[in-house]
Amino acid sequence: MSIVIIKPGLFSTIQDEGRKGFQHLGINPNGAMDIRAMQMANTLVLNDVSEAVLEFYFPAPVLQFTQPAFIALGGADFSAETNGTDIPINQPVFIPANTIIQFTSKKWGQVGYLSVQGGFDLSEWLNSYSTNVKAAAGGFEGNILKAGDTIDLRFNASNKTTNKEYSTMPWKASSKEFYHSNPLQFIPGHEFAKLTETSQTLLLSAEFSILRQSDRMGYRLNGPALELSEKKEIISTAVTKGTIQLLPNGQCIVLMADHQTTGGYPRIGHIISADLPTLAQKGINDSIYFTTTTIEQAEKLFIGQEQHLHLLTNACKLQLDAYHRH
């Protein structure tokens, strides 16, 4: 009993919150690009927030479920449908056996998630289900999904319900808390002060756009060339998701989920965790503005998102209880 990948889509992988504890060995964390969307999709089907989900871009995959399941879609809205019926995002749905799900158009965002109640029946690699394509490990066979791949599910929804037809559950979530428009907030990096005054001003005022060469490793930006006041070689140190590195040509790259563990380019800033979902949902040619913030403010926003997620988890539990009593 499983999901069969009919069409693989552009870059579909299994991801969770990421592989923690192995960066000292050069093993990058991977994990969902938009952690909040992944957590919310899990919460909606009463999974643990860290359960593995399917992550996809547009064109998105075509999927066939060989068994009934409770699922939720989150993150990007790619106009999901089954048999001519629209499937909402941020709302759990019951799908009967042999449902085929496809995504017809890009309405909002870049990266979508599908959670299944009970999760996928896969094995962890180094304590995580996230796909590490470079190491060919984790996720489903360590790779992006291909046509014909069959992912087993842990849980058979037919044991839990007498339902035989597609139906939406009577609860949904708002993802507004996790996204906002420009500017993106960053904490100045160790080499921010080494930018010339003009470059500092440009970074905080100019428009940047996302280049085509962007992927899960990093978002390459196009903007005014930034300069350092002294060209001193930097010794490699650790970098992290959200780090804005200054490349030798004066352009910036923002490191994302598949970033290398270390790097030797100047770190001019770090996008705050609370703004990474917003960045993850931006696509090629979208414009970006930057502003600085403090660590205190960054933590406050992060905790706010955590609390929102927590409230949502409790609300979903109550809704499920009510649904079963009904």
Binding site: G21, Q23, T262
Partner: peptide, 18 residues
């Protein structure tokens, strides 16, 4: 603390705010 990443002349400690 989730990761401790030594480098040439620095060490980075990654932690989970939550």
């Amino acid at each position: 603390v989730t990761d401790i990443i030594p480098a040439y002349s620095s060490i980075t400690i990654v932690y989970d705010l939550a």
